[in-house]
Amino acid sequence: MIRIAIANQKGGVGKTTTAINMATAMAASGWKCLLIDLDPQGNASTGLGVKQADRVHSSYDLLFGEAGIEESAIATIIPELDIIPATVDLSGAEVELVEFEDRTHRLKTAFDDAADKWDIVLIDCPPSLGLLTINALVAVDSIIVPLQCEFFALEGLSQLLQTVERIQKRFNPDLSIRGVVLTMYDRRNRLTDQVEEDVRSCLSGLVFDTVIPRNVRLSEAPSHGLPALVYDHRCSGSEAYMALARELIGRLPAKEELAA
């Protein structure tokens, strides 16, 4: 079971949009996928049409051992895609986690106790580098970093890379960066080209070839409780996420290897 965190401590970079649509695209490609909503805002849950009344168990319960992964996961409208939703309880989790000695490993423990029911797990992290994100980075094999094409995003990326390095040294030596995906890409903006050039020169092969364009349909889809790939599969944003999923699959072990 491959585990990937989608993380960036800067808000508004398209992280949740990437999580929702990447999970949908992977499921559409035949991968059994689980999305864990670890953001107290619960936008990934809402964006997949999960109503509050259906969130019987949540990622909060998972962190505090009140429910296991299989018990917490619920089916979505997308075949082969399940989700562990977030609830408002998660907003106080970081304060509560401080009391636990294993506060950085709570999510990893939940994974260790779970069966390999899914081919891939994606975790939508909150826009911070607090204990929720650290739990995700300790529990996963790798991370995908959505990076908005603007100057300040580069500064945030540097901080995230330093955090990844500290996690590798202290808690998870196997953690790697699966890739950086450029989001909100606008070729009409000269700054976009400059940011892309800087990121690719610094990180080389880590940056996905696929870029996610600015696209109004990507913004509209969550209000309908649908991934953009379902809301409008022909829009440029949906086509980009399908291309990104194909590129990601090319960087992953084959499903047959996972089952072996």
Score class of each variant (00 low, 15 high):
95 V>G: 09
174 D>A: 11
112 D>P: 04
120 I>C: 07
131 L>M: 00
180 V>Y: 00
81 L>F: 12
133 T>C: 15
155 E>A: 11
124 D>C: 15
84 I>T: 00
137 L>G: 00
109 T>N: 11
100 F>E: 15
150 E>F: 08
115 A>F: 13
165 E>S: 12
191 L>R: 13
180 V>C: 03
198 D>V: 08
130 G>T: 02
167 I>T: 05
93 A>S: 13
126 P>D: 04
188 R>V: 03
158 S>Q: 15
177 I>D: 08
179 G>E: 02
85 P>C: 09
162 Q>Y: 14
154 L>G: 01
168 Q>P: 03
104 T>P: 10
81 L>W: 08
83 I>M: 02
163 T>W: 02
138 V>E: 00
144 I>S: 01
135 N>P: 02
174 D>H: 13
158 S>M: 12
167 I>Y: 07
166 R>K: 07
180 V>I: 14
168 Q>N: 12
165 E>N: 12
169 K>N: 04
106 R>T: 09
141 D>Q: 11
177 I>M: 08
88 V>C: 09
182 L>P: 01
154 L>E: 05
175 L>N: 09
116 D>F: 09
118 W>Q: 00
192 T>I: 04
198 D>W: 08
119 D>W: 03
174 D>I: 14
186 D>Q: 13
187 R>G: 04
85 P>H: 10
117 K>V: 13
175 L>S: 14
158 S>V: 14
179 G>R: 04
184 M>G: 05
174 D>T: 14
112 D>M: 15
176 S>T: 12
132 L>T: 04
109 T>I: 03
177 I>K: 00
135 N>T: 04
81 L>Q: 02
177 I>Y: 08
162 Q>A: 10
167 I>C: 05
175 L>V: 10
183 T>V: 09
113 D>R: 12
86 A>C: 12
169 K>W: 11
191 L>G: 12
189 N>L: 15
93 A>W: 02
150 E>G: 09
184 M>I: 05
106 R>A: 10
162 Q>T: 11
168 Q>S: 11
123 I>V: 01
177 I>P: 02
198 D>L: 14
102 D>P: 09
134 I>D: 06
191 L>H: 08
95 V>H: 10
173 P>C: 03
141 D>A: 06
194 Q>T: 10
193 D>E: 08
132 L>I: 03
141 D>M: 07
154 L>D: 03
180 V>P: 00
189 N>G: 13
111 F>L: 12
104 T>N: 15
113 D>G: 15
161 L>R: 14
133 T>D: 11
